[in-house]
Amino acid sequence: MEQALVIAAHGSHLNPGSSEPAFAHADRIRATGLFEEVRETFWKEEPHFREGLRTVAPDEVYLVPLFISEGYFTEQVLPREFRLEGFDPADWDSDGTTADHTTLTAADVGKTVHYCGPVGTHEAMSDVIIRRAESVTGDTEVGSGVGLAVVGHGTERNENSAKAIQYHADRIRERGRFDEVQALFMDEEPEVDDVTDHFESEDVVVVPLFVADGYHTQEDIPGDMGLTEDPASGWETPTVVDGTRIWYAGAVGTEPLLAEVVLERALDAGAADSTSAARAMEGTR
């Protein structure tokens, strides 16, 4: 049976860069030929979530939210806008970070939709965070003598937002690769403003767990950390703050490896065949 992969991302009315990660990851997966069609859909751009499914031909769809945490978007907005009849967050049986997939029918198009958990809580996201640390430092062995801060928005609307950050910080810490690993937040303790207070290492890599670069990752966080007085004019990487070298990575969602997490979500839900998928992704690197 032919299958489509539909990526659901936030997008923006104001910032043209917001949708870039969705397009970049879709392009990479499209190039594998694993799916008959790959379509990017958005909350703020087009095709909108409401009209995304009618633009693909296959009757079987793997729907992967390009969101960081479980919550308002994955539990209310997406099921409603994609018209996933009978969706109940309880079907995911999640503790806040463990939603995997559930199969439903979209009422307007009658397609079978395998609705997946968000990319941000997939275990493979830990690898993307590490890859981001490697990219920003230019060191594929980065870890020894280095601290890693995983930064999230915090609990403003939803406690699962912090859970996802904590989840990856814990997993990466357990690997013992970095001297120190901390979860930091924009609007709750421990705050990213005081990043140097939370680390003893001379070098600290800061990776924001955001899908796209935008106001938060390009203005708020660099400003709060003291990387620059004027975020608009940019900053050095690394920048020394209070005697600590800060390697600020920008949004994790722009890391090309994230495409593999999108694909993993669909494979976990039964899409394609994982052996050929792994080979196909190799081919796009």
Binding site: E46, P47, H48, E51, G52, R54, T55, D108
Partner: peptide, 21 residues
């Protein structure tokens, strides 16, 4: 066309078929 004007073909066709929702 789908890239320039997303979903316009699908909705136009639904309308042609008398099924625009």
């Amino acid at each position: 066309i789908e890239t320039f004007y997303p979903a316009t073909i699908a909705n136009w066709h639904r309308e042609q078929e008398g099924e625009l929702d």
